[in-house]
Design a binder for these strands. Structure first.
Lengths: 203, 203
DNA sequence: GCTAACTCGTATATTCCGGTACGAGTTAAA
DNA sequence: TTTAACTCGTACCGGAATATACGAGTTAGC
């Protein structure tokens, strides 16, 4: 229910539309690098005056919300192209392959949003990709290839934390970007696949 | 090389000693809840004036460093009591059992430190527990019960992210504190134990 | 070409927080 | 008991960042 830019139908001049697009893009890029980039930084990166920015976004919170929403929308779009049929484990590999780059790009953005957005707002924002993953997990469970001894919500969260953690490692230079995707999928897979039955060490 | 409180040998009056202890404890508690608690909050929580605090810690950074160092020292102490012998998987369970509560308490503290401390400083601070875990992982690998297809540094990091993630889930009320420890160990175990050999779905 | 929408600089207010200055009162310890 | 260490309030400075005020110039769209 934001009053400014969340109206796609609202009549606006073409240049204003262009400005908004550039601002949101700049916000994604800047916040993707530094979670607490300043409004000024973003405006500069967008090639626009700070005042122009304020003309479209009443405050910082609504700006990062718009940026995050845009990133999620774009991400969900790419993800929707992934074929989730067939063996759930292979589908997982495909889904992660597409997800990884997206997460790596906007991990810091999410962190930025975390400090500004009203908590629950965040969850609704990335409910879509989370649900996509949850569905895949459930199907894998039904097919008997994914573990059922842990709650689905936790499994999805765990995947989320592993992805974001890997993004951080990569940004810190402790994880070679070339290996990253493979490492992530291998790790996540072993979280979802049921533990080897005979390998139990204790009760 | 800090000049204020990092001298255990320095002659100080008993009440000063007491103040410092209370301040550090308050810092751990406050920052453990809110990563950007203000200096004033901490002073109040310690039942001490802000000026007293500044009398012992020249600036915020050194305060959080002291708090983190104290938390790590205490943690490392408890962890050193854990028997890491025997089957590596059982040792892992024991180690996680002791680690979990510690992590859950000071997850936010670490986040606070992340934004203030000079990057590398952080790593040296919790080098001890990380090394402890790394050693266990390596031994498990040598014994053939832990996977060897991923770099040890990543495995340790992954465990770290899972622990902190679980702490966050618990704090958000999405993970029952009663189940948490079990869930965490089950998840971590499946990350470290080699993937079931026959279960591979694709190349 | 007229008008409203848009751009955008500068200047300023505000808020918050960290850190300093000063100084008086209090207490531990020789 | 004397002294130095410690406590601690109040007030202030400074920086950084968000947000507002004003007003002049520019441009899209009818």
């Amino acid at each position: 229910m934001s009053s400014t830019e969340a109206r796609p139908k609202q009549r606006r001049r073409a240049d204003a539309e262009r400005s908004i697009v550039r601002i949101v893009a700049a916000a994604r890029s800047c916040l993707g690098r530094d979670p607490d980039a300043t409004i000024d930084d973003i405006a500069k990166a967008a090639g626009v005056g700070r005042m122009t920015l304020y003309g479209h976004f009443p405050n910082r919170a609504e700006l990062v919300e718009a940026a995050l929403a845009d990133a999620m929308r774009a991400g969900d779009e790419t993800l929707s192209a992934v074929d989730l049929g067939g063996d759930a484990r292979e589908a997982l590999t495909r889904l992660l392959g597409s997800s990884w780059s997206l997460v790596a790009e906007s991990a810091a953005l999410l962190q930025a949003a975390q400090g500004v957005l009203p908590a629950g707002r965040l969850r609704t924002l990335h409910a879509a990709p989370a649900e996509r993953m949850a569905q895949l997990v459930r199907r894998g469970q039904d097919d008997g290839v994914f573990r059922t001894d842990l709650p689905v919500t936790w499994l999805v969260s765990a995947v989320h934390y592993l992805l974001n953690g890997a993004a951080e490692e990569q940004r810190a230079g402790r994880l070679d970007p070339a290996d990253a995707a493979g490492v992530v999928t291998a790790t996540v897979r072993s979280v979802l696949v049921p533990p080897a039955p005979g390998a139990a060490a204790s009760s």
